[in-house]
């Protein structure tokens, strides 16, 4: 499961960094390549999770991971931004 979750985190990070609203970098990653690479990593993550897991459990785990990572990333980068600015 570890490899699947690591791929998932990488995919979410790329998708977030390719968003014009990201605050982690001075400039966002190029939109289409960033989002495509992120989506690819997310697809690989799901494939990895389905190895050794019941299909429905893998899909649920993947969905939860995506929701949690994409919820936390904007908050973590906002916190980083605020403390860097103080």
């Amino acid at each position: 499961m570890g490899a699947g979750l690591a791929l998932l985190l990488g995919g979410c990070l790329l998708i977030y960094l390719a968003s014009p609203n990201q605050r982690w970098r001075a400039r966002p990653l190029a939109g289409m390549p960033g989002r495509t690479a992120g989506a690819l990593l997310l697809a690989l993550a799901l494939y990895q999770l389905q190895h050794g897991m019941q299909g429905v459990a893998a899909v649920f785990t993947w969905s939860l991971g995506v929701m949690l990572a994409l919820t936390l990333l904007p908050f973590l980068s906002a916190l980083f931004h605020v403390y860097r600015g103080r």
Binding site: M1, L5, M53, Q54, V56, A57, F60, T61, L64, G65, M67, L68, T71, L72
Partner: peptide, 23 residues
């Protein structure tokens, strides 16, 4: 069972329980 599992976090072991906790 999926509805019960989704509410009670009874899949994926400890990593999924932490995800439920944080969410």
């Amino acid at each position: 069972s999926s509805f019960f599992a989704l509410h009670f976090a009874t899949f994926g072991g400890t990593p999924v329980r932490w995800m439920y906790f944080l969410l």
